[in-house]
Design a protein around this nucleic acid. Sequence first.
DNA 1: GAGTTAATTAACTAATTAGTTAAATAAACG
DNA 2: CGTTTATTTAACTAATTAGTTAATTAACTC
Lengths: 121, 121
Amino acid sequence: MPDHLSATFAALADPTRRAILARLALGETSVTELAEPFEMSMPAISKHLKVLEHAGLISRGREAQWRPCRLEAAPLKDIAGWVDYYRRFWEESFDRLDDYLRKLQATAPKPQEKKNARKHR
Amino acid sequence: MPDHLSATFAALADPTRRAILARLALGETSVTELAEPFEMSMPAISKHLKVLEHAGLISRGREAQWRPCRLEAAPLKDIAGWVDYYRRFWEESFDRLDDYLRKLQATAPKPQEKKNARKHR
DNA sequence: GAGTTAATTAACTAATTAGTTAAATAAACG
DNA sequence: CGTTTATTTAACTAATTAGTTAATTAACTC
């Protein structure tokens, strides 16, 4: 995985892993307890944890024979930062050209002209 | 892909696809122009676009022989909503048990324990 | 030391992903 | 019509992923 944002997104792309994070939001816990809600073998959970750890989303301690997992939210902050850049696109501000065009399109159903929208970079 | 959040996260887990979205944030454009910055064949880009479209992150029109792509931000709003739940974990509020313990651990037991020097933003 | 509990590693398989090149489709152009 | 331009589909390959069962490591308990 090249960059750390990709690793984080990839880790979050699995519902089991997101459920694990949701559980850890309630507090640190063991692998066995994390595994319990899932119809899945322990090694499968272990692998999911490894993916989460690799992405920096959890850390693992050691306490006797348990390896308690803890949520680490720093990568989530990066995700929030990344996605926030796009906020304006879902908050429907009508001051951008794009939205202007979108509005035009909504009101004038059949634009005949081939508007040369291609720009040079 | 089961749920739509997973599909969105998976789509965002690739740097090429994120770059495509970044380009589309500047405005609607053609597949060829989207492909240009990448050392990658057109079919490869076409597949990336299909992934993005499947996740609802872009929509495609038709204008003569071009299929202009447009950013669709609704799924990003869902991502923002999901990640926002975890905001308290990176904003270091010290009113939770977890953070209390974390603080104890940082100050008390072992002098050469790693300092846990996370910064506020 | 033997057994129990917690978790990981090894070895394997099936499915998915990300890329390739070559062929096909679709619309515009002369 | 045949050609050009834009894009997709087909067919293939290599790498990665998500899961399995069996074996292993590690620490505690008797």
